[in-house]
Design a binder for these strands. Structure first.
Lengths: 344, 344
DNA sequence: GTGAAAGCGCTAACAA
DNA sequence: TTGTTAGCGCTTTCAC
């Protein structure tokens, strides 16, 4: 056994070992032997040398030379959130299938961080980017698109018709959820909203109002509370709403984290679901069916969301063209369990 | 407004715009102006040109030149699994703090894929690697460590004393859980295990046996079932165990996914938790407290796991030395809720 | 059939 | 105080 070296083997060393020039070695190893009419013998001796030395070409050098990095960027507001994690996974799997690698970044729900991370990814010459934007601002993203960097936005989009975007059909989902509540006799419905002014949130709000309008029930905007998609916001909003407006009979949580907070607030206020309080949530959850009150929810198809985003991205990269259709909506599914009490 | 170019600006163009050589430009932009005694005027004109042209240096070229990529690799069996996602997040945040980027890969619980992904990451010249190994095999990993690539294993380790490893204290956790069951009067305890021959699984099994031995209760190995950490395995194992051995009064699930499966099987077999069946699970869960039977569980501190792994990795990179202590265990916490019935 | 040489964008030794 | 040059590891003209 010889002592193992630490430095990676270079093409030059392989070439020397095989007694040929670097160019020949390069050609023999990148399947271009035929094209260059390299003799079977040389080809094999190069391959043998490469194998023997455990040669693995530097993708860094390859990338610099070819200006193709085979790198994809993914920027998410919170990697640990199962919803985003699922998206990350779909992109990652698609990348692996297509021999791309994925650079992952976490913007921590902070727009400035997002801008910075995107710049860094660009400096690494990613060939494509998927981002679940924090929200509001999008100049840094439309700039990228203008530079012809394949870009796909997921979940939170913008009112910007040129950006390729994949979202759930938030409006329909919210409308259906609200309709179910209304048709179960609830009129005083508290809304636990997420991050205001983001597309999912505003769309869901529209869906809620649509449903009220369709049922000729006046909607009371003071029954909206909350400012984030997290547990804390759900808890605080539910607590406040339930305390200030005891007439509320049902809560519509805009995320499963919000719902979790609502459950905690309800427990503290001594209101049992569904007897004393009905609840419906956006986003399903594996444990939803086994809760004390199996939770009725609007299920987003995250896998489809991620998969479509990945497909749109890869296609853009391969064809060099943005897709014809920019805006994509994935349907949402209402899962009726038993957290809503009929009070008609 | 001039037409926007698509190609990134290079240092050369900045240098030309500022009327200096590339080297001067390089020095002026990498804070080495002082060291090289570059005049204030030149420095500023270079910086101005860079800003005006929106220059962003190619990290690719930088890396190739410096042989430092500022890249970390993370390989996980399943990115969408919240447990691993949490680890990914901690690494990502630590990376961002230290100006590293993260290459994420998903091995899909497949050892061969893992090997391949690790090779690919190595070809990209990552400076450090965190992996949650699929299991069993580890030659490809110990090889890396021998090549002095900073490497940290998380969650599933090996019986290999030279690899830096961070895991929960699986054995203590399992012992405590089993003790609780035993001291609540349960003797016929079904074990829903995860992937056999992985360190967490075998350690937990040891913990279970320890507890039985300490309480002088004979342990019946035929009451172990299951072969994965997922819902399906939990369901099948629970179904089989409960059908074949109706005398079982309690189930110990080795993951929250296994517990979920157990809940489903129990429901189908008409056994209610905790009245007809006690249940305890490894891994806590946000919704655990709100289940029909609030679930008693052994909570792993994933955040700490990830954070420690990140710290160990970064330190290795910075110092160039592997840590003194290789094996690290994070304590586990028993959270007593109400899925266990006292039958003494 | 194969080799020499240029160059991807950058930094650093060496000159001046 | 600044410029020239070499070279990181690879691919690809162009030459023979």
């Amino acid at each position: 056994m010889s002592k193992s070296t630490s430095k990676p083997i270079t093409l030059k060393e392989v070439a020397e070992a095989a007694g040929v020039s670097v160019s020949t070695a390069s050609r023999a190893l990148s399947g271009k032997a035929e094209a260059y009419r390299i003799s079977r013998a040389t080809e094999q001796s190069v391959q043998a040398a490469a194998k023997r030395l455990q040669f693995s070409p530097s993708l860094l050098a390859k990338s610099l030379r070819s200006q193709r990095t085979k790198l994809l960027g993914v920027v998410l507001p919170n990697v640990a959130n199962p919803f985003f994690a699922a998206i990350a996974r779909e992109i990652t799997l698609a990348a692996e299938e297509n021999e791309f690698s994925v650079l992952l970044a976490d913007s921590q729900e902070n727009s400035e961080t997002e801008v910075h991370l995107v710049e860094q990814l660009q400096a690494r010459q990613i060939e494509g980017l998927v981002v679940c934007p924090v929200g509001i601002a999008h100049q840094h993203l439309s700039k990228l698109a203008k530079q012809n960097l394949p870009l796909v936005l997921v979940d939170r989009g913008f009112d910007h018709k040129d950006l390729v975007t994949v979202t759930s059909n938030h409006r329909d989902g919210a409308r259906e959820a609200t309709t179910l509540l209304l048709e179960s006799g609830h009129q005083k419905i508290g809304v636990l909203q997420g991050l205001p002014d983001t597309l999912p949130n505003t769309e869901r709000l529209v869906g809620v109002r649509d449903a009220f309008a369709e049922h000729d029930v006046p909607f009371d905007p003071t029954l909206i509370a909350g400012n984030h998609f997290d547990e804390a916001s759900g808890y605080q909003a539910a607590y406040k709403l339930l305390s200030d407006h005891p007439e509320i009979t049902a809560l519509f949580a805009f995320s499963n984290q919000n719902a979790l907070g609502a459950l905690r607030a309800a427990a503290e206020l001594g209101r049992t679901v569904p007897e004393d309080l009905s609840l419906i949530a956006f986003d399903d959850h594996p444990f939803a069916a086994y809760l004390a009150a199996p939770m009725t929810s609007v299920c987003q198809d995250v896998t489809q969301l991620g998969r479509l985003a990945a497909r749109l991205l890869i296609e853009q990269i391969k064809t060099g063209q943005p897709p014809q259709q920019k805006q994509h909506q994935i349907p949402v599914q209402l899962i009726n369990r038993s957290s809503i009490k009929n009070i008609e």
